[in-house]
Amino acid sequence: MNKLGGAIYEIHHMDEMAEKDQWLNRIHPLVKLILTVCYIAVTVSFPKYNMEGLLCMGVYPIALFILGEIPFRDSLRRLRIVLPLVCFVGLFNPFFERQPVLALGGITVTTGMVSMLTLMIKGIYSVFASYLFIASTSIEKICYAMRLLHIPSVLVTQVLLTYRYISVLLGEANRMMQAYSLRAPNQKGVHFKVWGSLAGQLLLRSMDRAAEVYESMTLRGYCGEFCYAAGTPCRWKDYLYLGGWCAVFLFVRGRSIFW
């Protein structure tokens, strides 16, 4: 599958997962958004040599993967984007920090190795947390949560529309690329002579589509403001879920500070 096809599949797959009727999906989107940001912030706030505390933070993704029945293998694929840059940054730490910490068999573990490992763990945990959030929450619900946080409707509507049209334009780009590759076999990528016309055609079509979208929205009563259906309010279960996890995070973080 090519890159465009893969992206289309990924979007549909995430949509399907977010639409499932499971307990994790039913939790209020604002609660999940706040919890995800809190978890990532607490995770990255750990000192670079605190491996023990950081490992304890793994309880959140592990619990949600198991209890939420979210496929773990899919989330591993997402690491391929994050890990290279994190590794590039962390890879040099063992060369600059050579103070020995402990000896495992014949290998001396240095502070640089520990800081490199903690950096990688932080990267992995934060990817897992974002994945768990998006796998259990549809983009419409995320936008609803953003509106509850008083993020202006201009921005939220724009995000919603971008998401709505991504799969349409990815499909269009995919068809264009298929047609191009059939006419230019054994060629990797787009030849520089058609850089402008290929992407330019897609751009012009997108602009025409935007005009059609606007007209159809206007016919349905759009006047610059989107009307959102009244969402469900937070229930006591949501508050309990938020409070429980926040207590766990604070306990693990506080433990590393005070003990």
Partner: peptide, 25 residues
């Protein structure tokens, strides 16, 4: 009011166009 749908579609265009690989001669 026309601008917001245009922004949405253009955002989707950037997303799609960034997935196209342009060969560097």
């Amino acid at each position: 009011t026309r601008k917001i749908p245009v922004m949405g579609v253009m955002g989707a265009f950037v997303f799609a166009a960034q997935m196209i690989n342009f060969t560097i001669p």
